[in-house]
């Protein structure tokens, strides 16, 4: 990581703390903000957050590792989450998954070689009446068919 990048990251965190207050309860919102922008919360960022909130770095790592939507290592540029809960499962989530795996030439839970997509399972998107459902970044899509799912991915930059 370049020094400028580090400084920029620190500044970002400082800005968020200024907005949210220097308190432990700001932690998740800060992590979320960094995650949104950088698609992960690096070890450097974790330590800076810990320093600026005056908590231990391991506490930041502990919290980060607890939540499914936060991660310490970078994922692909786009995050695809496919609902695996029983309602979507019954509506054919397996077929969707296999179609995506074939199309992107990868296995679920991994990232494509061009780093464009990370595809994962997610526990219940709350769209059980419209399954199978998946989320691409912060947008959700329902009543998927294999064709529709692949088409949606092809539109993603």
């Amino acid at each position: 990581m370049l020094v400028e990048e580090k400084n920029a990251l620190t500044e970002e965190i400082e800005l968020m703390i200024k907005k949210l207050g220097k308190k432990r309860s700001a932690l998740l919102s800060i992590l979320h903000g960094i995650q949104m922008k950088h698609r992960h919360v690096s070890e450097y960022a974790q330590q800076e957050i810990a320093r600026l909130l005056d908590i231990h770095p391991v506490e930041v790592f502990s919290v980060l590792s607890f939540y499914a939507f936060l991660n310490a290592t970078p994922k692909g540029r786009n995050l695809v989450r496919i609902c695996r809960t029983i309602s979507c499962d019954m509506k054919g989530k397996d077929i969707i998954v296999r179609a995506i795996e074939r199309e992107l030439n990868m296995k679920i839970g991994h990232t494509t070689s061009d780093n464009k997509f990370t595809v994962e399972y997610v526990n219940c998107l709350g769209l059980c009446d419209e399954g199978p459902a998946m989320a691409i970044n912060d947008q959700v899509f329902t009543k998927l068919t294999p064709e529709k799912a692949v088409k949606l991915l092809s539109k993603v930059k």
């Binding site: 070890e43 974790q46 231990h56 770095p57 391991v58 506490e59 790592f61 502990s62 607890f66």
Partner: peptide
Amino acid sequence: GVLEAIDRGYKTHIGTF
């Protein structure tokens, strides 16, 4: 502040930063 619980559920373990 060296040790904390890391991950969750079945994967929970005590770990360092």
